[in-house]
Each structure stands twice: as C-alpha cells, then as structure tokens.
Amino acid sequence: MKNTKKWSFYIFITACFLVFLIPFYIVIVNVFKDNKAIVNNALALPKSLDFSALADAFEKMNYARTFMNSLLITLVSVSLTIVVAAMCAYLFARKNWKINKIIFMVMVVSMIIPFQTIMIPLVKNFSSLGIMNNRATMIFFYIGANVPMAVFMFHGFMKSIPYELEEAAKIDGCTQVGIFVRIILPLLKPIASTIFILNFLGTWNDFLAPFIILTDNSKKTLPLMTYMFTGQYFTDYALVLAGLILTMLPILIVYIFMQKNIIEGVAQGAVKG
C-alpha cells in the first residue's frame, strides 16, 4: 500500500516535471540543427552539433555589449537600491518623526501602482529633461522604482533589532553614522540578500521600462535585444532559438550555483512583502 502510493507519486510528479521542462528541451535540441532539420522534425535530437547558429546570433545580437549593458544596469541599480533603502529604513525605524511616517506610508501605498500607469508620464518627464535613451537614467529609474519595497522590507527587519545594542554603542561614544555602519549594516545581511535576489531577477528580466526608455542598439539590454532580434529574423528558427539560449544562459548558470539562495530569497520575500 505504502509502496503503490510512493510509486504513483514518483510517476505523476516526474510526468509533470517532464512536461514542465519540455520547452527547454525543444529549444536546446533545435539550436544545433539547421532550419531544414527543424522544420522536418523539431522534437528529434540533433544528428550533429552545429554551433553556427549560436555564433551567428552572438554576433547579430551584439551579445557581449548587450550582456554588459544588462549586467551594468542591473548590478549598479540593485546595489545602490540596497544601500539607499537601508539608510532610509534605518531612519524611519528609529526616528518616529511625522514626516518619516508620512513618507513611509506613501511608499507602501505606491507599491500597488503598476508600471503601465506611470509609463506615459515617465516618458514625458524624462524627455523634458533630455535624459531619455541613457543607461544612467535606466539605473536611476530602477532605484526609484525598487526603493519602496526595499525600504518596507528593511524597515520590518530593523524593528526586530533590539535598540539596546545601539544604546550601548552610543554610551561608548559612537556617532549615529558609526552605529549604522558598524552595528546595523552587518546585521542586515540576510534581508539584504533576499532583496538583492528579488530585485536582481526583476530588473534583469524587465522589458517594458527599457523598451520605452532605451532606443540605441548599443544601449539595449538582453530582453530588449532578444525582442528586436527575434522580430527581425523569426522565420530563421535556428538563429532565433540560438538568441533565446544566449539570453537564458546567464541566469540559468547563476541558478545552478545559487538555487538554494534564490528559492529561499523568493520564499522570504513573499512572506515579508
């Protein structure tokens, strides 16, 4: 009885698992074929490994450059978000000023504003300042957009740090900045890594914001370039699939090494957020 239950579990879950991952199988096997072989049978394994489509896509997507754009925008914006949000949350958690309470409330409420509601005025605002089509603008945008959730999560976490720790440091002559840097920051590591993971995934994969802000090919991020590139060549399956693989590869590699942290981060983020 127990064995049948066990086997039906494994058979069922494995079937689901395979169905879930078949799309990746289809992409991977076809990237090594030529178009004739793909149209002939898209589900079969390749007869030989042909890397020409990958090389071609690498060049046509200007991959090295595009990858660096994505990495630069994501890493810088996520790191800065964490720093400024931690500072802000510290003040909000420790000083009960009216202005702090008001701004905190506004930030929390703003989290339900969808991007589509602000994208049109955003274009107008940024154009009026002449800062469209700029990677620094992209970074600044992500900081502003991600700060509310980060402040909210840091704030919740800091409330749980006992105040006595800081008082002891104060008596020893530590300044407010010193307390923050030496005592609070080191304690924030777990929540900071959760915020880092959530924001990294969101920013790395974001499409609509760079779609309306970045227009130069040399500044585009991976999702954006993938869209442009596949739109241009969609009938050339091998090339398109190669482009998709190249876009998926970095995040999958990171996932292989950090899957425990990523899943943990996502679970934590949902509970706190």
Binding site: M87, F92, T117, P121, F140, G144, A145, V147
Partner: peptide, 18 residues
C-alpha cells in the same frame, strides 16, 4: 543624509510620474 537619496529617487521617478 539617511533618507535623502532614497526619498529623492522615489519622488523623482514614481512620485513625479504619478
């Protein structure tokens, strides 16, 4: 010093656009 950068970025990007 503490809240300035975050509040400025938030107000400039989200607040102004909204």
């Amino acid at each position: 010093g503490f809240a300035g950068p975050a509040v400025f970025a938030f107000a400039f990007v989200i607040g102004w656009a909204f």
